[in-house]
Computed example of a mutant assay.
Amino acid sequence: MLVGIVSDTHDDLDVVEAAVDLFESRGVDAVVHCGDFVAPFSVTPFDAGFDFHAVRGNNDGEWAVESTVNSFGTYLGEAGTLSFGTVEVAVTHGTSEVVVDALVDCGDYDYVLHGHTHASGVEERDGTVRVNPGGLPIPVAGADDSFHVATLDTTEPGAAAVTHHRLDR
């Protein structure tokens, strides 16, 4: 199974459409958005040919984001868990590093997906892989001047299953 991972799109329809186009061209089965859509209009392009799951980000101030996601996908609230076959995944926005680290360190999940920092990255610790797909470019440590998303191939083991994709805006 191929899973698309995206975060921190912040109402930028150009990057949302670029992400959806990439996911469709790669034939992903599901997409997970790690929060910070901001407004419902930037949710609707994800109503595409894949299953869709999302968590709430710290900038998702409009509560209609939840009902918009639920109209075609699954809204997980502040955090949630997903199973892709035998692969167990935890998803949170990532506002709290303590929570992200606890999810990684507990050993219950194969992957922990989060955003918030806008810096793409992957880290494997004791059998759990932490994945941040990145987000809109902002001037923070670890981020560059491009928008990034990721894909996760659940048939591959560990960090090698994750590919980051740099998208032009």
Rank of each mutant, 00 (worst) to 15 (best):
residue 39 A to S: 15
residue 120 S to L: 15
residue 35 G to Q: 05
residue 7 S to I: 04
residue 56 R to M: 12
residue 153 D to Q: 05
residue 16 V to C: 09
residue 169 R to I: 11
residue 41 F to M: 10
residue 144 D to I: 10
residue 122 V to M: 06
residue 40 P to A: 00
residue 64 A to Y: 02
residue 92 T to P: 00
residue 146 S to W: 10
residue 165 H to Q: 04
residue 157 P to F: 09
residue 128 T to A: 07
residue 36 D to V: 04
residue 9 T to P: 01
residue 63 W to Y: 07
residue 54 A to Y: 08
residue 30 A to N: 07
residue 12 D to G: 07
residue 100 V to R: 10
residue 125 R to W: 12
residue 64 A to V: 12
residue 31 V to A: 11
residue 30 A to P: 05
residue 25 S to K: 14
residue 81 T to L: 13
residue 104 V to P: 00
residue 65 V to F: 06
residue 26 R to N: 03
residue 68 T to P: 05
residue 27 G to T: 00
residue 59 N to E: 11
residue 143 A to F: 00
residue 101 D to R: 14
residue 111 Y to P: 15
residue 8 D to A: 06
residue 15 V to A: 15
residue 167 L to M: 08
residue 92 T to M: 04
residue 133 P to R: 00
residue 110 D to V: 06
residue 90 A to M: 06
residue 3 V to N: 03
residue 30 A to W: 12
residue 112 V to C: 09
residue 133 P to W: 00
residue 28 V to A: 10
residue 140 V to H: 06
residue 55 V to N: 08
residue 135 G to W: 04
residue 34 C to V: 09
residue 128 T to K: 03
residue 79 A to D: 14
residue 26 R to C: 10
residue 73 G to A: 03
residue 7 S to G: 06
residue 158 G to E: 09
residue 32 V to N: 07
residue 129 V to C: 13
residue 38 V to H: 11
residue 115 G to F: 07
residue 60 D to S: 03
residue 164 H to F: 12
residue 146 S to N: 12
residue 47 D to M: 12
residue 57 G to T: 08
residue 28 V to E: 08
residue 32 V to H: 04
residue 76 L to T: 06
residue 158 G to C: 09
residue 36 D to R: 02
residue 62 E to Y: 11
residue 153 D to L: 05
residue 43 V to L: 07
residue 68 T to W: 00
residue 66 E to A: 14
residue 75 Y to V: 06
residue 153 D to P: 11
residue 82 L to V: 05
residue 123 E to I: 14
residue 166 R to I: 01
residue 112 V to D: 09
residue 65 V to I: 15
residue 114 H to F: 15
residue 142 G to H: 08
residue 84 F to C: 01
residue 116 H to G: 04
residue 16 V to K: 12
residue 90 A to H: 05
residue 115 G to N: 12
residue 48 A to T: 08
residue 21 D to G: 14
residue 32 V to K: 03
residue 49 G to E: 13
residue 164 H to D: 04
residue 8 D to E: 07
residue 157 P to T: 09
residue 108 D to Q: 14
residue 124 E to Y: 13
residue 125 R to G: 11
residue 104 V to K: 03
